[in-house]
Structure formats: structure tokens, C-alpha cells
Write a protein that binds this DNA or RNA. Structure first.
Length: 711
RNA sequence: GGGCGAUUAGCUCAGUUGGUAGAGCAGCGCUUUUACACAGCGAAGGUCACAGGUUCAAGUCCUGUAUCGCCCACCA
């Protein structure tokens, strides 16, 4: 027996050596697997990890679950590809980089965009080594030879092609619409990237001619020249649509026009409001309906424009009290309700209040895409685990709105389009051949915006496989499982379905498996401010990667969150050691024995029990019940193999009955042999290390590519 | 306002088509018996949120209530 079994299992000593063994074997790459020509493929595309980030607990879960599926299917003889990817993570990375610039006393505003891009690229590529090695350390059996980066020129080419095709199919338009603008980051966001923040502010009741209007935002009111009320409001029946009134306003006399619109809530405030179409969605809609003028009041930097007169150049927070002061001086403040509860939309990254602005942006018409997706989902062509995500998705798809894919950041894929200098019309221009505006004949410039990161990542399953060339797309697409966090069901999963269908005619994956959040040991959400963020790699180095992996799987049902405590991981460290010592006992007691020796009735029954376990575990794994599969193996090994079979065996080995002894020895060998296989997807390191030390006849040199037990 | 989920042992959670409650961890008692003290053995611990209903039988199905959480939409 190998002397190393005399000591407890030491994961730190084993893991990097074993990972190198796997990697050198080449078997992460499906092309190297010893398979028949017609072997069925199994494909998982790894959600591209932020190239700039560090492995967090959520990644730990992704890497574990996807690796469990990958290892299981590989052992079953499928042509198994787990394709790893790194994400440039557009806005996310740029924010990190901006903080770095800030520390250096620099700012991205004023930098040459090309220089900035290149600096961020270097920064990202440098940092990407970190996340990649962390993914490896989790034991991920991904095919690194096929690793893809979201800014790979081959990917960009495919993304451009989609952009062009959308334009051709009339699914793309450029429109001046209200966008969610963050004055700090100076970019727009999709509605999904906005956080609601409940606040208590003052609601100001201002005298506007004969009316009193209520507003929480007096600073937007400079240009308000339309006063709107509900057509059926009896209080204002005397005022007619289109009627004009002269009145005194913040910076002097103005002429206001009465507008009647049913969007007004008669019960709110006084039932009258003035509108600011440039900075509010509802107001914008009213202005569009009645073809009203729109005027910008607040600049992209969040400061008031010259229309504000003496307040021009001030930030909102600074201007608001001064404006109220002035209005009070003019006797235009009716009353102030200082206890007004409302929801303010903020930037999910910096918390800055979103300042809606009208900007010309590229939009994708989502309805036609969503309809196709709904057809497929309703026809059960795609399986959601857990099932209720299907409902959530259907609901979202049925109420979908157009998708703004323009972002005013440099770190991303540049939008291949020309914009008219005079009328702001846009033209898709992949070849760079457009030199003047078709509408007005004006000169054009290259669009300086980039794509929303999700626009490219929503094409990831087919884009990666197409970009790799050769037979990869034909072999591995559609993929089998898409596994990710439930929090990006709209951002990513649903859009992948729509774009995948659009571009390839096929669903990009057959099953969507959504895991929940990983919480701390007390079941609380991890956050930097609470200081309860778990670094999974610390647990891995303390208790072993295998222990961390199985701790992430057991007790983790899809879609529900998982509390991860050090005690739990520690418990599975003990389990790894248990397996280690079971091996020691069996090796000590079976030297020179043929594991295929004939079994007596009693031992045959032991093997039949084991077969029953194989059947159940295989079934659970096929049905994505990883937590059950892992728990069953755990209990079998500890409570049956160790506590019952091994204990009985001690007595048998002391007896004189040689035949009985040999039968039991062979049975133990077979059970251990099979148990290592069953446990391998969950705890790959310790099982492989043991496999490598077994002096027996094996069906493969490397456990990772040995055959999954069959009954 | 709309939607979705959760509520089971001190903690974290299982419980797959309804058949008199399970695990891990923590805690308690005992045992250093030659695979393992990263262990073994033993005991303890729950009116399965609450109220109704269906059923021979309900943690499991139905209705309602409460509490917690998440998502979407939104009124100046």
C-alpha cells in the first residue's frame, strides 16, 4: 500500500498536481476523447466571467455545477465540451478602470478614446490571468484550447453581422427617445440596469398662473410651457385644449398652453401638471401625442443649461433650494409637503440619480423576436429548472419593450455605423462606405458609442462556436444546458433565446438551469458593506476544493439561495478524509487479491445494493437533481460502505474461511472502484488522487475519462 | 399596483406521483476498540406559519390569512 494513506488526506498537496495531470492528458478537449465517430455531443457554454474580476462565491457555484454535469457526461462517453469564456464586461470594467484613473488624478473625459481603449485592454488582459487560474483551481474541466474572449475579432465580426441583419430585417432603428442617463458615468442604461430607491422628499405646490401644480423637481420647470389636465376633470372644464395663458414664472413672464390628456391622474396633487418632455418619460409621451416642443434643461453633466438663467451651471442639488427661495420671494409657492414618499431611479453602480435625457440611440424592436421565443417556450421546446422561471420569462416576453443597445462608453464593441452631423440620422456601415447622409445630404461621422455588453453576450452560444470555425458549430450547436444565476434571466438568458432563434433558427440550448444566490452562513446576502463576503478560495485552501464543491451542491436546490458556512465545508472536508481512510482500509486488506473473484451470495447482494445506488444517482444527475445525487453518494459511502460493510468485513477477515474472505475482498474492491466513479463529478481531486494510487486493473488511466458505472 | 417564491429540529435546508417527519452542522453523554478523534456509539430535539376544505389518509392538493424575500411596473 502507498504510504501516503497513513496520513490524513491533504488537499493542498494534491490539487494542483492532479489538475496538471488532467490538463496534460488533453481530455478537457472533446476532440481528444477516445470516442466513436458518432458519439453524441454534450455542450455547456460557460457564462463568460468578468475578465477583470475575482472569483466570488457565485462563480464557485457555477464552476461546480457545470463541472459536475461536464464530468458526468464525459464519463458516460459523450463528446463533452465545456467552453470557457471571458467577458470584457463593458461598463463594469470601465467603472473599475475609472476608479484607478481617479486615484492617479486622471479622468476618462478628455482622454483620447483610442488611448483609453488600449489602456483598458491592457489592464483587462493583465487581470484576466487571475480569474482564469481561479477557475482552474475550482477543478473546472473546461476546454481551455477553445477559450473565447468577448472582444475577440472573430466574435466582433459575428456581432456586426447580426447588427446589419437586424437593420435589414427592419428590427433596428435609431430613435431620439428618453434614455436613462447617469450624469456621473455619462452613459445611458437599459431599464434593467436601473435601481429603484425609495425616498422621502419635499413635494412643492407651485402657483402656475391660475393653477397650482405639484412637483418634486422644481429645477426642471424652467422651460415648462404646457400645462396638462385630464379632459374629464370638472375642476378645469373652463379651460380648453390649446388655449394660451400669460403668466409669471421663475425667470419672468411666459405664455403657457393648455393640453388635455388622459394620462393625468385626477387624484394626484391638484390634477394639473406642467411637463418637461426632455427629462421625463411620461411627459415625453404626452409631448409626442400632442406634437409639442421639447427643450433640454439639464446637461449631460447634470448641470443646468442657460435656459435656467441665473441658475445655469449649477448642479441639481445646489439649485433646488435656491429656486424654491426665489419662487417664495415671488409668492409663487403655495405650500410644501415635506413628507412625500416616492421612488427615485438611480444608477445601479454609483447610486447617482438617473437623469432622463432625450438621446438618439440604437434600438432593437423586440416584439417580433419575443413572439418567436414565446412560441418555442410555450411549445415546451425548452426546459426551465426550476420550472417557475418559465412563467417569469413568459410574462416578461409578453410585455417586452424595445432594447436600447447604445452605450456612451469606450470599453466595448464600437457600433459600426455612421451618424449624420446635422440631422442625427444613423446608418449601419460595416464596410465604412457611407460618406453622407441619405436623408439630408449632410456630412457624417463614425458613431462613437459602443454596444451594450449584453448585446454581444446574448449571441454567445452561437458566436463562440461559429468563431471557432471548423465543425464546432455543426457539432456542438444547439448546446445542451445553459446554467447561470436566476438574476440574469432577462439580461442574458431570454435575450440569448431570442437572438439565437433569430440568427440560427434554433434555440441556443435545450435546458436552462438557474441556481440561486450564495448567501453567507447566516443566510444573509453577501455585501461589501456588511463585510460578510465569502471568498470561496479561502474555504478551498482551508478545507480543500472538493469539500467546497460538494458543500455548494448539497442542500442547494435550483433557484433557491444557499447558505454557505465554514462549518458546512468543514464537514465535507471530513468526508474527503473518510473516503481516503476507507481506501486505506481496503488497500491494507486486499493486497494481491483479484477484484473479479467470484462473489458469494451475501457479497452479491452488496453489489446489487450498490447497483441500486448507481441507478438512483444516474437518474438524479440526468434530471439535474445534483443535490440529491451528491447526498445519496455521501450517505452510501459513510453510512453503508464505512459504517456497515467495512465493520462487518473486519470480522470476516479475522475468520478462517478463505473463500468468504476472498469474496468480501473482491466485493470491497468493486464497491470502492464504483464509488470513486460516482463521487468523481462532485469531488474530482480526492477521487482522482485515490484512483491514481490504486494498484488494480482499471478501465482508464485517468478516472476523469473512466466509464460511468452501469448496472 | 401586478407577479413569483418562501415559512419543516438551535442554525442551514431536503422531503421527486399524498401513505403516521429526514440530513448536515451545532449542542449533550459515553468510548482513545489496530481505516479514520478530520472517528465511533448513544440519547435528545419538530402540534411541518395560521385557519378552513378535499381525502380512508395532507408537510405534500385546494381556498383564505399572516410574516419574510425577490422581480416587474409606476403619479407630476
Amino acid at each position: 500500500m502507498n504510504d501516503k494513506f497513513l496520513n490524513p488526506y491533504q488537499p493542498n498537496e494534491v490539487e494542483s498536481r492532479i489538475y496538471a495531470l488532467w490538463e496534460e492528458s488533453g481530455f478537457f478537449n472533446p476532440d481528444n476523447l477516445p470516442l466513436k465517430e458518432d458519439a453524441k455531443p454534450f455542450t455547456i457554454i460557460m457564462p463568460p466571467a468578468n475578465a477583470n474580476g475575482s472569483l466570488h462565491a457565485g462563480h464557485g457555484l457555477v464552476m461546480t455545477i457545470e463541472d459536475v454535469m461536464t464530468r458526468f457526461q464525459r464519463m458516460r462517453g459523450l463528446k463533452t465540451l465545456w467552453l470557457p469564456g471571458l467577458d470584457h464586461a463593458g461598463f463594469e470594467t470601465q467603472v473599475v478602470f475609472e476608479k484607478k484613473l481617479e486615484k492617479e488624478g486622471r479622468s476618462r473625459f478628455g482622454m483620447d478614446p483610442k488611448d483609453l481603449y488600449n489602456e483598458i485592454l491592457d489592464f483587462t488582459l493583465e487581470n484576466s490571468k487571475n480569474i482564469e487560474s481561479q477557475i482552474r483551481s475550482m477543478g473546472a474541466s473546461a476546454d481551455w484550447s477553445r477559450k473565447m474572449f468577448t472582444l475577440d475579432p472573430r466574435i466582433i465580426e459575428i456581432v456586426y453581422d447580426t447588427f446589419k441583419q437586424l437593420s435589414k430585417d427592419d428590427l433596428l432603428y435609431r430613435g431620439a427617445r428618453i434614455v436613462n442617463w447617469c450624469p456621473k458615468h455619462r452613459t445611458s442604461f437599459s431599464d434593467l440596469e436601473i435601481k429603484d430607491d425609495e425616498r422621502v422628499d419635499a413635494l412643492y405646490y407651485l402657483k402656475y398662473g391660475p393653477f397650482v401644480i405639484a412637483t418634486a423637481r422644481p429645477e426642471t420647470k424652467f422651460g415648462d410651457k404646457y400645462v396638462v389636465m385630464h379632459p374629464d376633470d370638472p375642476r378645469y372644464a373652463e379651460y380648453k385644449d390649446g388655449q394660451t395663458l400669460d403668466l409669471e414664472w421663475i425667470n419672468g413672464p411666459i405664455t403657457a398652453t393648455v393640453i388635455k390628456d388622459a394620462a393625468i391622474d385626477m387624484a394626484f396633487g391638484t390634477g394639473v401638471m406642467t411637463i418637461t418632455p426632455w427629462h421625463d418619460q411620461t411627459d415625453f409621451d404626452i409631448a409626442e401625442r400632442h406634437k409639442l416642443d421639447k427643450e433640454q434643461i439639464i446637461g449631460e453633466d447634470g448641470k443646468l443649461l442657460p435656459v435656467a438663467g441665473e441658475f445655469a451651471g449649477m448642479k441639481i442639488a445646489e439649485a433646488r433650494p435656491k429656486i424654491i427661495e426665489k419662487l417664495q420671494g415671488k409668492g409663487l409657492v403655495d405650500k410644501i409637503d415635506s413628507n412625500y414618499k416616492h421612488v427615485v431611479r438611480t444608477c445601479y453602480k454609483c447610486g447617482t440619480t438617473i437623469e432622463p435625457q432625450i438621446k438618439a440611440q440604437w434600438f432593437v424592436r423586440m416584439k417580433p423576436l419575443a413572439e418567436k421565443a414565446l412560441e418555442m417556450i410555450n411549445a415546451e421546446k425548452i426546459t426551465y429548472i426550476p420550472e417557475h422561471y418559465k412563467k417569469i420569462t413568459v410574462h416578461w416576453l409578453e410585455n417586452i419593450i424595445d432594447w436600447n443597445i447604445s452605450r456612451q462608453i469606450v470599453w466595448g464593441i464600437p457600433i459600426p455605423a455612421k451618424i449624420c452631423d446635422s440631422c442625427d440620422a444613423g446608418y449601419v456601415d460595416l464596410e465604412g462606405t457611407i460618406t453622407k447622409c441619405e436623408k439630408c445630404g449632410g456630412t457624417v461621422h463614425k458613431d462613437t458609442d459602443t454596444f451594450d455588453t449584453w448585446f454581444s453576450s446574448s449571441q454567445w452560444p452561437y458566436a463562440t462556436l461559429q468563431a471557432l470555425g471548423g465543425k464546432d458549430f455543426d457539432t456542438f450547436y444547439p448546446t445542451d444546458v445553459l446554467e447561470t444565476g436566476g438574476d440574469i434571466i432577462f439580461f442574458w438568458v431570454s435575450r440569448m433565446i431570442m437572438l439565437g432563434l433569430y440568427k440560427t433558427g434554433a434555440l441556443p440550448f435545450k435546458t436552462v438551469y438557474l441556481h440561486g444566490l450564495v448567501l453567507d452562513g447566516k443566510g444573509q446576502k453577501m455585501s461589501k458593506s456588511k463585510g460578510n463576503v465569502i471568498n470561496p478560495l479561502e474555504y478551498a485552501s482551508q478545507f480543500g476544493t472538493d469539500a467546497l464543491r460538494i458543500a455548494l451542491v448539497i442542500g442547494n436546490t435550483p433557484g433557491t439561495s444557499l447558505a454557505l458556512s465554514p462549518d458546512k465545508v468543514k464537514g465535507y472536508k471530513n468526508f474527503a478524509n473518510k473516503v481516503w481512510n476507507i481506501t486505506r482500509f481496503i488497500l491494507e486488506n486486499t493486497e494481491g487479491v483479484d477484484m473479479h473473484a467470484a462473489l458469494n451470495e451475501e457479497d452479491t447482494k452488496l453489489l446489487r445494493d450498490f447497483d441500486a445506488l448507481v441507478t438512483e444517482v444516474t437518474d438524479d444527475l440526468e434530471k439535474f437533481r445534483f443535490y440529491m445525487a451528491a447526498e445519496k453518494i455521501y450517505h452510501y459511502i459513510w453510512d453503508t460502505l464505512a459504517s456497515v460493510i467495512l465493520e462487518e468485513s473486519k470480522a470476516i477477515f479475522k475468520e478462517e474461511d478463505a473463500a468468504k474472505k476472498v469474496s468480501r475482498q473482491a466485493a470491497l474492491m468493486q464497491i470502492l472502484y464504483g464509488s470513486l466513479k460516482l463521487l468523481h463529478p462532485f469531488m474530482p481531486f480526492v477521487t482522482e488522487e485515490i484512483w491514481q494510487s490504486l494498484p488494480w486493473e482499471k478501465d482508464a488511466e485517468i478516472l476523469m475519462v473512466s466509464k460511468w458505472p452501469s448496472v
